[in-house]
């Protein structure tokens, strides 16, 4: 465990609280992609299967896993019930099947081992790397976002970005290297790069998030 990883995990945790806070404070889920949330739930459910047999291995990991699964399920529940009037299927239209299909294909081609758990783990890593695309696509269609939504996206993107120095650290200091997670994590961070740039040049300088 190193500082980058802890900061990454905390950033992930914070992003979920910001998302829930966004819905509570604006009483709306406008601007949030239901498709991306559903993809994340698939990611957590397929990656954290091991929670049933490693519960005692690390209380930290197990509790985080539970929080990620439950909070994402709760977010989806809120979006489909309390805040459903703000859902806009006309804007949230990204072809998610391609993402699930592509991640499935990569998982079957390159798992560390051919076991159900390992293939699902690999699937979850690839799916996570692209799960944000429906959300970014939606953002591009609307051309603007509420400031709190951009804080959510920043915290979510920062999580995987912070994992990159963590992987470097572990590679050099612990001899641990996870090629699947690292390649997928770099792709995931690259997908955010435009967003990070606009967040840095606009939101952090007190301006509204608007696409040029």
């Amino acid at each position: 465990m190193n500082l980058f990883r802890i900061l990454g995990d905390l950033s992930h945790l914070v992003s979920i609280f910001i998302l829930l806070q966004k819905m509570r404070s604006t009483r709306s889920c406008a601007g949030i992609s239901l498709r991306t949330q559903i993809l994340y739930l698939m990611v957590y459910c397929t990656r954290y299967l091991d929670i049933f047999w490693t519960f005692n291995a690390s209380l930290y990991n197990s509790s985080m896993k539970l929080v990620f699964i439950l909070s994402t399920a709760y977010t989806i529940y809120l979006m489909r019930t309390v805040y459903k009037t703000a859902l806009d299927p006309q804007i949230d239209t990204f072809a998610t099947y391609y993402l699930v299909g592509g991640a499935g294909l990569l998982a079957v081609l390159f798992p560390y081992k051919y076991t159900v758990y390992e293939v699902l783990w690999s699937f979850s890593i690839w799916l996570e790397s692209v799960a944000i695309l429906p959300q970014l696509f939606m953002l591009q269609r609307t051309g603007e976002a509420e400031t709190i939504t951009t804080h959510y996206l920043f915290a979510l993107g920062a999580y995987r970005a912070l994992y990159i120095p963590n992987w470097l650290y572990r590679w050099f200091l612990e001899g641990h290297f996870d090629p699947i997670a690292t390649v997928a994590g770099i792709i995931q961070t690259l997908l955010y790069s435009d967003f990070f740039y606009i967040y840095y040049t606009k939101v952090l300088k007190g301006k509204k998030f608007e696409l040029p």
Binding site: H12, S58, K65, K113, N166, D178
Partner: peptide, 10 residues
């Protein structure tokens, strides 16, 4: 023999 990959991250 290659050591098995541990999944100890989130």
């Amino acid at each position: 023999k290659k050591e098995e990959q541990k999944h100890d991250e989130l």
